[in-house]
Computed example of a mutant assay.
Amino acid sequence: MSQPYTVAIDPVAFHLGPVQIHWYGLMYLLSFLGAWMLGEHRRKQGRLPVSRDALGDLAFYAMMGVIVGGRVGYMLFYTNIHWIWTDPLALFKVWDGGMSFHGGLLGVLVAGLWWSRRHKLHFMDTVDFVAPLVPIGLGLGRLGNFINGELWGKPSNLPWAMIFPNAGEQDTQLAAGDPALAKIFEQFHGLPRQPSQLYEMLLEGVVMFCVLWVVSMKPRPRYLISGLFALMYGCFRFLVEFVRLPDVQLGYLAFGWLTMGQILSLPLIAIGLILLAMSRRAPILSPATESAKV
């Protein structure tokens, strides 16, 4: 096996005086900007009959839903629940890291429901409009995880396996208990691992965006886009979890392979199938024939 690529990228993209601008923060910024630009493009096509200002409100509420829901979801799903009565302020310690996609998704749905009622639109029309924009953030977020050298995969001898220096402590523990891994560790000063972040970037970002964007450009029934989103994300996340290590504070929850990510993805798969079934009897939606509001 040749020398694997070592993922040792500086997480700081650049400095603005004393302020450090991190790549992960830039990924969030690019995600929101990209979603806004494509959302405005779709609005002008008449795919959501609202004004530019109304779309701006939706973007803001969705952004808050991602941040608040993502943080709350992480604290509920991925940490010991004791923090609620022992250290409730831990919820606000965002600098310690920890965001959950499933929590962020719930936050966006709550924001979208409130916004839809305010503008007297069918909630699922709003969800269908937003769904093709979400993979932009998913893909860029996974790229940010890769740059940070976090959420790495399992040790592997595949030609594209990579060494993540941040996994050094875990690599040492694994090598200590396995002579074969110890030999590899000694040879490469680390264990080559599956770049699971790149798998997710490709599947949850590129593939999902292409499929949802193409399907949403054509006349299609209500619920179809949302159903495809939920089904694809649930399936992709469930599969990638097999080559991705579970969160260290949780480990495997059952059978020696079931992770929290897989458990949280099962409802999405079920919801996706239900929405696709509902779409078979739903009205066909086309871009508004009249000009979009300005």
Rank of each mutant, 00 (worst) to 15 (best):
N80P: 00
R193G: 04
M75T: 09
I81K: 12
A111L: 05
F92C: 08
W213R: 00
E200K: 06
A282V: 04
S31T: 15
D87S: 14
F229C: 11
I67N: 01
S279I: 04
M201H: 11
R142S: 07
I147Y: 08
L48T: 06
V19R: 08
V72T: 07
F60P: 01
L29G: 03
G177W: 01
I21M: 06
L33M: 12
E40A: 13
L48E: 10
R237T: 13
V248K: 14
Y199S: 02
G149P: 01
L275F: 14
M201A: 15
Q3D: 14
W23C: 10
G256L: 11
M63V: 08
H119C: 01
F209I: 10
S265I: 05
L76E: 08
S51M: 08
Q170Y: 12
W36K: 07
L273N: 07
S156F: 05
V240W: 13
G73Q: 01
K218I: 01
G97N: 09
M260Q: 11
A180L: 09
V7W: 03
M124P: 00
C210Q: 06
V12F: 05
A182L: 02
L181V: 05
T79L: 01
T259R: 03
G104M: 03
L212P: 06
C235I: 15
I147R: 13
L224D: 00
I284Q: 13
C235D: 02
S156L: 11
H22A: 15
G56M: 03
V211I: 15
L228I: 00
I284H: 07
E204H: 07
L273W: 02
P11N: 06
S226R: 01
R118L: 14
F123V: 09
V211D: 03
I271L: 15
H189E: 13
L38V: 09
T86S: 15
G56S: 02
L250S: 00
Y199T: 04
V215D: 00
V134E: 04
V127W: 05
A230R: 01
N166V: 11
F92Y: 09
D87L: 03
R220K: 14
P49H: 08
L105I: 08
K44I: 04
T6Q: 13
L138S: 07
L89W: 14
Q197A: 09
N157A: 14
Q3P: 00
R118E: 08
L133M: 14
V240N: 12
V66N: 09
S51E: 06
G205N: 09
W23L: 09
P165K: 02
V206M: 10
L158R: 12
Y233M: 15
R222Q: 13
D57T: 06
D87A: 14
A270E: 06
W114T: 07
R220C: 05
L266W: 02
W257L: 12
L198P: 10
A59F: 12
S116P: 01
L151K: 01
L38I: 14
D171Q: 10
F123T: 12
S291L: 12
A131L: 08
E200T: 01
S216F: 08
L48Q: 06
R281G: 13
P221V: 00
L121F: 02
P135H: 07
M99R: 09
D57I: 02
G234H: 03
V134F: 06
F101G: 11
E204W: 04
A230K: 03
D57F: 00
L174K: 12
G17S: 11
V214A: 10
V130F: 09
Q173N: 08
G70T: 03
S196Y: 05
G227C: 00
I269C: 11
V19K: 11
R52M: 02
